[in-house]
């Protein structure tokens, strides 16, 4: 199937001032590659602070002013330039953000979904979208502070699907929800994908991601370290990278074993594999290698010099 979105060797840097004067390029995402196909949910899983949200902003062309990116993002086979992203966002590409603070606190919900436009059946579209998620017409007249947590998420989803987008990016859309509400939201995502949209689901919760994802990309310190089919997560032996394996082992039903240490901050590891410090299978060359390339392995991809072998 032809992918709707292809990201190749994407890097995002922040310009920082070191001790006041010296400019420094701080890499937050390094050499990220990802493919999203229509009708599929691709989950990007990583710890907080690993640059996941920036990935969403890069695709939408709304990175903060003090950052810049390298690499290529292709949408529907054509390069997604800043200008093209500007035309497509909100129409073909839409974002489902984290929570209620992504709504203007002083504007009624309906007015925000309609984006200030009138005519063209926008009123009807807005009503339809809300209805689809079980929200009545009265929701349009509410202010964000009047919505409950679950309602706010549904409003955000409704706002993303008013224009029937082909690519939907959901950025941590479930924290703060109970399991039932979260799985209902995820059910909506699955529906959207089954209706033909490509879905990028950004989360820190591997367990949650596995319930709906077709493919999973694991983030570590701003890099994709493994990309695999969700089915590979059935058993530990299907996995390729020691970090993914550690994540798997940390899941409650797989032993609940925590991983010692913490992720390095982006930009602090200049040489070698960033996971080397935490890795239990580290070998001498792991900290010496100039670059650890992402390579194909058993139908997925892994960024490791000595990947886990399938026994």
């Amino acid at each position: 199937m032809k992918p709707i979105l292809e990201i190749e060797h994407l890097s995002i840097y922040f310009t920082q001032y070191d001790r006041g004067i010296r400019k420094r390029q701080l890499p937050v995402i390094r050499d990220l590659s990802l493919k999203i196909c229509p009708g599929q949910v691709t989950a990007v899983v990583g710890a907080s602070g690993s640059g996941k949200s920036l990935l969403a902003h890069a695709i939408l062309g709304i990175l903060p002013y003090n950052s810049h990116m390298d690499g290529v993002i292709r949408y529907d086979g054509e390069e997604l330039t800043g200008k093209r992203a500007e035309q497509l966002r909100g129409r073909e590409i839409s974002l489902i953000p984290q929570g209620v603070n992504y709504l203007d606190p002083l504007m009624k919900v309906g007015a925000q979904i309609r984006k200030g436009r009138k005519g063209g059946g926008i009123r009807e579209k807005c009503r339809q979208a809300l209805k689809r998620y079980g929200l009545g017409e009265e929701t349009e007249e509410m202010f964000p502070f009047e919505l409950s947590g679950g309602m706010a998420r549904r409003v955000l989803i409704a706002s993303a699907v008013t224009e029937s987008p082909r690519l939907i990016i959901a950025d941590e859309p479930t924290p703060g929800l109970d399991v039932k509400a979260a799985s209902r939201i995820l059910g909506h995502f699955r529906e959207l994908a089954d209706a033909g949209a490509g879905m990028l689901f950004i989360t820190h919760d591997l367990e949650l991601a596995l319930t709906i994802a077709d493919r999973v990309a694991v983030f570590y310190a701003g890099e994709t370290i493994e990309e695999a089919a969700a089915a590979d997560f059935q058993e530990a032996r299907g996995l390729r990278h020691p970090f993914t394996k550690a994540l798997w082992n940390a899941m409650p039903e797989h032993g609940f074993i925590p991983l010692k240490g913490a992720q390095p901050y982006p930009g602090t590891v200049r040489k070698g594999c960033p996971f080397a410090e935490q890795c239990d299978r580290r070998r001498p060359d792991c900290k010496e290698a100039e670059e650890v390339p992402l390579r194909e392995l058993r139908g997925g991809r892994v960024r490791c010099l000595h990947p886990e072998a399938a026994e």
Binding site: L60, E86, L88, G90, L103
Partner: peptide
């Protein structure tokens, strides 16, 4: 965050300043 989301929804700079900024 709400201006970021307004941008992501495809609102123009003008609309963001006039609709969300002023308010």
């Amino acid at each position: 965050d709400y201006v970021l989301f307004a941008k992501a929804r495809g609102e123009s700079m003008r609309s963001i300043v006039l609709r969300h900024g002023l308010r």
